[in-house]
Each structure stands twice: as C-alpha cells, then as structure tokens.
C-alpha cells in the first residue's frame, strides 16, 4: 500500500475513525518487514496487538456446579427416609389395647377396685401434707 495512504489511515486511526477492516490493513502493514523509519515506532504497537491476541487461558473449565445438586437431593431423600422410618416404626409398636375380661361387669368392678386403691393411696399420702397449712397460716400473718 502507498505510504501516503498509510499515513492517512494512521491519522484516522488515532482519531478512532477507522473501520475494522482498515485497522486490519494497518496491522498487516506494520507487522510486515518494510516499514519506513519515521513510522518504525508504530511497529511495536501493532506487533503488540497481534501478539496479545494469541494469548490463551491455560486452565480448562471445570464444571463443579453440576455435582453438588446430586448430593443435595441425596441428603433430602435420606432425611425423608429417616423421618418416615421413625413414624412408621412408632405406629407399629403402639398396638390397640386388648380386652382382658370377658364379662364387662367384672371389668367394671376390677377397674373400680383399682381406682379405689389409687385414691386410697393418694389420701394416705395427702395426710402427711397437712402441716403445709402452717406455712399458709404464717404467710397470712405477713401478707394480707
């Protein structure tokens, strides 16, 4: 390409008015061998640009994100299984009470007997608590 043309392009380039294809021309020109001495300093610039465009990332992308969800669901499944297990075994254990007497009359009497026994013991135990009334009396002296 003609030198005057290149100079014009350069001027446009620094004004930011060149098109991509014009910039490509400049790049080709300046990465070539023959560049007049007064334009030599731009050689580095375009050389640098074309070198930079060849740098590549060395690490490969590792998608670790895809692994975690799998384990997350395993955890959820395990906890559901655990809770379900607890409830299921409980219901199996608590069986319905079985009738021990054939005749309801006898059953009633037996029940009454047991309830009587319980209340009897309760009353016996309560007798020992009579002295608690003393506390109440003393308290009343101070707090009215």
């Amino acid at each position: 390409m003609e030198l005057s043309n290149i100079e014009k392009l350069l001027e446009k380039y620094f004004e930011g008015e060149t098109t991509i294809s014009e910039e490509k021309e400049l790049k080709v020109y300046f990465t070539g061998e023959t560049v007049p001495s007064h334009l030599e300093r731009y050689k580095d610039l375009f050389q640098y640009f074309s070198n930079e465009s060849t740098i590549t990332a060395t690490k490969d992308l590792k998608i670790k994100a895809s692994r975690t969800p799998k384990y997350k669901w395993i955890g959820v499944a395990a906890s559901i299984a655990l809770i379900a297990g607890i409830f299921l075994t409980r219901t199996v254990d608590s069986t319905e009470p079985v009738d021990t007497f054939e005749d309801p009359e006898i059953a009633l009497q037996e029940t009454k007997k047991i309830l009587n026994m319980v209340s009897q013991y309760m009353n016996e135990g309560k007798q020992n608590l009579v002295y608690l009334q003393e506390f109440e009396n003393t308290k009343k002296k101070f707090i009215k």
Partner: peptide, 18 residues
C-alpha cells in the same frame, strides 16, 4: 469512539516520548 481515540493518542504520545 472518544475513549478509543484518547487511549490511542495517549499510547502514541508515550511511544513518541520513548
């Protein structure tokens, strides 16, 4: 476009200095 032109000119200026 403005930033591009400013940046390029700045580079040119520094290159000239050097």
């Amino acid at each position: 476009r403005v930033a591009l032109s400013r940046g390029r000119k700045k580079i040119r200026e520094e290159l000239l200095k050097k």
